[in-house]
Each structure stands twice: as C-alpha cells, then as structure tokens.
C-alpha cells in the first residue's frame, strides 16, 4: 500500500502561484470568494533592512496520520484512506464545520449553496465535480493520483518546489529526501503527524552599504552622497555595521574569501508556528 506525502522545497518556490491556479481549476474551488485548497503566502521576515527576507510559503491540507478533523466529524464524512489521503464524503457531510475549527492548519473551507450556484456558471454545469454544499479541502487530487497522475499543484510546479512521495516506497527519491531529515513538517509538536514536509529556507545575505557620511548617521542604508566637500566617502570600520560579511558561504575553497562560515539554515517553520 502506498502512503502519500508531499515535500515542499522552500528554496525553489518562486511565488509564481501556478499551484494555486492549477488546483483551483482542477478542483473547481470558489476562488472568486477567496476559497482555495492551497495557497502560497508571500511572507515578509526580518525587522531590519539587513534581515529582510521574502519567503514564499505554500500551504495545504497536511493529510495527518492523526487527523483532528476525522476525530471531530460527527457523521464520519471525513475519513482517512489506507493510502494516507484524508478526504470528505460529500454524501455524508452535513456542513457543520467542526472539522474546519479542529484543523490546526486552517486547511478547510465551507462550500455553500451560493458557491455551487456560481460554480455552475464558472466551470460549466455539465462538467462540475462536486454538486453538494459542505466542506472542501485538498485531497491530494485523489482522482488524478488513482489515475497514476501527480496532484495538479505538483505536476505544474515550475520551481519543482512541490514533490510527491510514497513513504512506503524506500526507493522513492522524494521519500529518501524526507527520510534524510532535511525536511520537517508543520507544528509536529501538536501530535497530528502531518504528511507535508518542508525544506527550510537558507539564510540569505543582503548587501548594501552601511556607512556614515561625514559623521552623519545614514538613513536605514540610504547613503547620503554629496555634501559640501564633494563626494568623500568614509566607511565606519565597525563589525556591527558589516552584517553582510557574516554569512558568506565558502563556495570556492580556493577563494581568498573562503574563510567565512557556511550559510546558515534558519528554521522558518518553527518561527511560523
């Protein structure tokens, strides 16, 4: 039996939103009401200019092995399949939203009557997939997976950031990456045993001049050029003002600049949680 999981390499997600579009079309989600099965957040990190970071952060259902949504579902509509996929049975769902509240990953949304009416117009009545109100969420594109195809978001990911794994197959290269421990899931401390793994982002170095001009403090990296005596340039020889020298990776062992430590891996995910 397969046990499906997803690996997301945050270092190659370019924030292109192709997965959002692919998922919305494949799964006919009410995107016009800002309802998505997957989203890519565009996150600003770092308070100061030298710490500025922009992280593209894709999110979706984590298909937990210990899914709170299944536990709370009063009708048994939400269920876990043998292959690891958590799905919702439309016929049994009464739309009570207990699962939506229970999910710590905010992965579910209510699909209401208005959504379905609009869906007929947008996606075409004859080709609608879901016709009942209730709850909707990512199901790893179950139909596609059962048809030996990849989930729509994985299939199209231009940055190859999203990869699909079968954890029961030790020869699966994506499983091997997950098993290497380089990737980690979201909020594992909750005990949900999620099946979406993230490779954390590398720390980036930001270059710009932090200096002073004729003793004046510069403005957040803005270097005031000019002045009474032309363009004399004076750089403060203070390590604190040289944040940019701290994180250089030694990519070339022969480089005269090779004496700096390797780029740090920061834990984006734990901070996010």
């Amino acid at each position: 039996m397969a046990h499906y999981a997803m690996l997301i390499d945050l270092n190659t997600c370019t924030g292109c939103n192709a997965c959002m579009a692919a998922c919305a079309v494949e799964n006919q989600t009410p995107f016009w009401s800002d309802k998505w099965r997957t989203q890519v957040h565009d996150i600003s990190k770092g308070k100061s200019d030298e710490d500025a970071m922009r992280v593209f952060f894709p999110r979706l259902c984590n298909h937990c092995d210990n899914p709170p949504c299944v536990t709370v579902c009063p009708t048994g509509a939400t269920y876990k399949m043998d292959n690891g996929i958590v799905d919702v049975d439309d016929d049994m769902c009464m739309g009570c939203q207990a699962c939506t509240l229970a999910c710590p990953y905010d992965a579910r949304y209510a699909l209401d009557y208005d959504d379905n009416t609009e869906k007929k117009a947008v996606f075409g009545e004859e080709t609608l997939k879901k016709t009942r109100p209730g709850v909707d969420k990512c199901n790893f594109c179950r139909d596609r997976v059962e048809d030996n195809r990849l989930p729509a978001c994985v299939e199209t990911c231009v940055g190859n950031a999203r990869q699909f794994a079968d954890l029961d197959n030790p020869n699966d290269p994506v499983t091997q990456i997950i098993n290497s421990g380089i990737a980690e899931p979201l909020m594992a401390h909750l005990g949900t045993k999620p099946n979406v793994y993230y490779i954390p982002v590398k720390k980036q170095t930001v270059h710009f001049e932090r200096g002073t001009f004729n003793g004046q403090k510069s403005e957040g990296g803005l270097h005031p050029m000019g002045g009474e005596n032309g363009t004399t340039f004076e750089r403060k020889q203070n390590e604190d003002m040289h944040g940019h020298t701290e994180h250089h990776a030694a990519f070339d062992a022969n480089s005269p600049f090779a004496n700096t430590p390797n780029a740090q891996i920061t834990d984006l995910l734990r901070e996010e949680a």
Binding site: N11, T12, T14, G15, C16, D49, A52, M53, R54, V55, F56, K202, Q204, T205, V206, H207, F208, G221, A249, A263
Partner: peptide, 14 residues
Amino acid sequence: RLSETAAKADEWVR
C-alpha cells in the same frame, strides 16, 4: 527590491 528572483538568492545585492 527583494523581487521574486532576489528572494531565491544566496546573496541579494540591494
């Protein structure tokens, strides 16, 4: 600017 491309850089030269 920390463009989509710059966000993928090991070094962002601002």
